Computed example of a mutant assay.
Amino acid sequence: MTRTAPSSALLLPDPGHSFWARIAHELADAIGSGIYAPGERLPSEHSLAEQFGVNRHTIRRSLASLGQIGLVRSTQGSGTYVEDFAVDLVLGRRTRRRQSLAQAGLPGGMQVLASRSLRASADVAKALEIRSGSTVLHLQVIGDGGGQPLHVSDRYFPCPRFAGLDDLVRQSGSITQAFAERGVADYTRRQSRISARLPEPDVAAHLKQPAARPALYVSSVNVDPEGVPIEYACTWFAGDRVTLTVDHDHVA
């Protein structure tokens, strides 16, 4: 799936504000109309400066503003490219991100960045319906699609029930598969809360986006067939690469 420019262009300054803002809007319109296709490299700063009759500093500011809203990405020594996709992930009763990626025609996986056992904070304990201070397994994971990082998340699992689950996730690259190996063949999402926030610097670095660009933040609770919470997740999604669809009737 591709990301189009019109809705993103609304985040740009008024085109009458300055030369760089007007040029940014013209480039955004060109991207939205398909003049510059997803994944295509834009003309060089020198070429754009000649095209618009301005200096290269003005072009750099225009391109930087397009990068901040996720329409383009700059690669040092290579140039500036149109962002090439935005995958639509469904948040339903049975949310399976690998399945959503497959439906979008994208390969994807999950990697464990860090794991540890810790005492549950009040928020984690409330979400998992356990006593504050109880032992939980904490995983920090990163998920990718089509070779691009899509989300970074902190995930909490009650112990001793899921002690050692991190090894299973490392082996399979899938929390769903890890759950199945622990006897949880099915689970559903009880709740998802979505907001837009500025990511912490380390999160922005993992997502390969500027810290000044908002990301989608989702907190969620998954439960087993008996309604017992088995996972509390706080996930940052790259806003320029992910569209979240909330489907209350989605069950598969």
Results as ranks from 00 to 15, higher is better:
residue 220 S to A: 15
residue 208 K to F: 08
residue 198 L to M: 11
residue 83 E to K: 07
residue 26 E to C: 01
residue 200 E to I: 03
residue 78 S to G: 01
residue 14 D to W: 11
residue 224 D to G: 08
residue 149 P to H: 10
residue 175 I to G: 00
residue 7 S to H: 15
residue 244 L to S: 05
residue 211 A to E: 05
residue 117 S to L: 15
residue 5 A to H: 07
residue 211 A to V: 13
residue 227 G to I: 13
residue 111 Q to I: 01
residue 73 R to M: 00
residue 19 F to C: 04
residue 34 G to E: 00
residue 113 L to P: 11
residue 141 V to A: 08
residue 203 V to S: 02
residue 100 S to E: 15
residue 115 S to C: 13
residue 18 S to L: 06
residue 240 D to T: 03
residue 226 E to T: 11
residue 122 A to K: 13
residue 93 R to M: 14
residue 173 G to D: 06
residue 145 G to L: 01
residue 178 A to C: 12
residue 100 S to F: 08
residue 168 L to R: 10
residue 187 Y to S: 10
residue 145 G to V: 11
residue 220 S to W: 06
residue 196 A to T: 15
residue 32 G to H: 00
residue 132 S to D: 13
residue 165 L to E: 10
residue 179 F to E: 04
residue 16 G to S: 07
residue 132 S to M: 14
residue 117 S to G: 15
residue 220 S to P: 11
residue 37 A to H: 15
residue 104 A to Y: 09
residue 145 G to M: 07
residue 148 Q to G: 14
residue 171 Q to W: 13
residue 125 A to C: 10
residue 143 G to Y: 07
residue 47 S to N: 08
residue 81 Y to V: 04
residue 241 R to N: 02
residue 204 A to W: 02
residue 5 A to V: 06
residue 39 G to E: 13
residue 148 Q to D: 09
residue 65 S to V: 07
residue 146 G to D: 06
residue 28 A to T: 12
residue 97 R to H: 06
residue 249 D to W: 12
residue 120 A to L: 10
residue 104 A to D: 14
residue 238 A to Y: 04
residue 205 A to V: 00
residue 58 T to R: 05
residue 64 A to C: 04
residue 27 L to G: 05
residue 222 N to G: 09
residue 162 F to E: 05
residue 227 G to R: 13
residue 106 L to P: 05
residue 163 A to T: 13
residue 66 L to T: 04
residue 72 V to K: 04
residue 93 R to Y: 12
residue 135 T to H: 03
residue 188 T to P: 05
residue 199 P to L: 03
residue 119 R to H: 15
residue 186 D to I: 09
residue 164 G to Q: 12
residue 69 I to W: 02
residue 229 P to A: 06
residue 204 A to G: 02
residue 184 V to D: 09
residue 112 V to K: 01
residue 180 A to Y: 07
residue 56 R to G: 01
residue 61 R to E: 12
residue 44 S to M: 10
residue 210 P to R: 00
residue 62 S to K: 04
residue 211 A to W: 02
residue 102 A to H: 10
residue 115 S to F: 06
residue 51 Q to P: 05
residue 62 S to W: 00
residue 195 S to Y: 02
residue 213 R to A: 01
residue 87 V to G: 01
residue 251 V to S: 15
residue 114 A to L: 06
residue 69 I to H: 01
residue 189 R to E: 09
residue 109 G to H: 02
residue 251 V to L: 15
residue 231 E to R: 14
residue 171 Q to M: 03
residue 27 L to R: 08
residue 178 A to H: 02
residue 223 V to F: 04
residue 13 P to L: 05
residue 76 Q to M: 13
residue 98 R to I: 11
residue 184 V to A: 06
